[in-house]
């Protein structure tokens, strides 16, 4: 019975992941086989041309995405961690209202934020710049980060913080040397999500960085689709490379990912 369930489970997973397999398969397919009917189901006679094209043309895009992702993580943590500590432990008057605002902020469609940012960035010279993109991308993560970190931090035992105070530590000291180290796991979770969202962002990139000299990998793929419709092995090879952070995340931090999904949805 249990073995039979495993077989069904493997089949279901295979069906679900077929598009991912197909992306990898096409990334190895030769140009001449690309329009073959029926298509090659396995990458026999495979080629690395697609990946060579990525190395030739897409490395700068990948570099920009890395910088934007790391910048977004830094900005998000800088803003969110102190706020979460305050909401969880310092009982600010009006804290409930602020949590409510953050909850609502998560629901605003990105495309609307993009239009407002466009108007502002145009006048302040941030349009088509990497810092501008980092600021815009961080709006995807900051409300989520504050709410998740606050949930985790409110679980820190009060005795621990009192012991620090008895030893003469002020609020700032307690935050830096007790709260932050204890919250390591939730900080990792939040950082992973912030990086992934910034790395995957297309809405802000395509509106705020369309004419920029430094464009992220999502735009690299988008230009590929628009320009050379024929070289799908190169497009899919780029897609495979762009999926690497998601894969790494899943392999090294799977339980944090599941925790983040459910914490964001079920708790507040």
């Amino acid at each position: 019975m249990r073995r039979w369930k495993s077989v069904v489970g493997v089949v279901l997973t295979a069906v679900m992941l077929f598009p991912v397999y197909w992306m990898i398969n096409v990334s190895f397919t030769r140009d001449t086989d690309m329009r073959k009917s029926p298509p090659n189901w396995f990458p026999i006679d495979g080629t690395l041309d697609g990946y060579r094209a990525v190395l030739d043309q897409q490395l700068p895009y990948l570099g920009v995405s890395l910088v934007v992702g790391l910048g977004t993580v830094a900005l998000t943590l800088l803003v969110a961690a102190p706020a979460a500590y305050s909401l969880a432990k310092l009982r600010p008057r009006g804290g409930g209202a602020l949590s409510f605002v953050l909850l609502v902020a998560q629901m605003i469609p990105g495309i609307i934020m993009a239009m407002g940012f466009y108007a502002i960035f145009l006048n302040t010279g941030l349009l088509n710049t990497v810092p501008g993109l980092i600021v815009a991308d961080s709006t995807l993560a900051v409300p989520f980060a504050v709410l998740i970190l606050a949930t985790f931090m409110s679980g820190i035992p009060e005795e621990l913080l009192q012991a620090a105070r008895t030893d003469g530590a002020g609020v700032v000291r307690t935050f830096l040397s007790i709260v932050l180290p204890v919250s390591r796991n939730s900080i990792i979770t939040v950082s992973l999500f912030a990086f992934l969202w910034a790395w995957s962002d297309f809405v802000f990139a395509s509106t705020l960085d369309q004419g920029g000299d430094h464009q992220p990998i999502t735009l690299g793929i988008y230009h590929y689709i628009g320009n050379n419709n024929q070289e799908w092995n190169a497009i899919m090879a780029t897609a495979v490379i762009a999926s690497v952070p998601a894969t790494v995340l899943l392999v090294i931090a799977q339980r944090y990912v599941a925790a983040g999904v459910t914490a964001g949805a079920v708790k507040d």
């Binding site: 679900m16 197909w22 790395w199 297309f202 793929i221 897609a239 762009a242 998601a246 894969t247 799977q254």
Partner: peptide, 16 residues
């Protein structure tokens, strides 16, 4: 493994 489609960048899923 079922999480993979949700973690992939949307441009990757959409172009695939």
């Amino acid at each position: 493994l079922f999480l993979v489609p949700w973690l992939l960048p949307l441009i990757v899923s959409a172009s695939t």
